[in-house]
Design a protein around this nucleic acid. Structure first.
Length: 97
DNA sequence: TTCTTGACAACAG
DNA sequence: GCTGTTGCCAAGA
């Protein structure tokens, strides 16, 4: 199983109404310094997998710079955004069991 | 094989 | 607290 493939499997575990950071996903996969690979994986993520990749944001709570629709998708799930457009990680961060 | 790029994280101003 | 720069790692040309 490739690292990217494991990223897909982990992203599917993110429940609705919560968000996870790239670093967090990378850490859960056993690669704390490979947060960029998670982003790369999502960029290659096919929609056939039905991945909630819009629930993945960076450590500062910013959404993808080239993907503005992500913010709207999260708002649809109930994830609160600040006035500047950052996600409320303090409140909606995903806590894996 | 080497250089450049990238849906990032952490640090500094 | 927010924006800009630096550093890390893997994939693609």
């Amino acid at each position: 199983m490739a690292f990217i493939e494991r990223v897909y499997n982990l992203v599917e575990e993110i429940p609705q109404g919560t968000v996870a950071t790239y670093g967090q996903l990378a850490f859960l996969l056993g690669a704390p310094n490979r947060s960029r690979l998670v982003g790369r994986a999502l960029s290659h993520a096919p929609e056939e997998r039905n991945l909630p990749c819009h629930r993945v944001v960076n450590c500062q709570g910013r959404t993808a710079p080239h993907w503005i629709e992500q913010r709207r998708l999260l708002e649809e799930e109930g994830v609160g955004f600040r006035d500047n457009g950052c996600v409320n990680l303090k409140k909606y961060c995903w806590k894996p069991l």
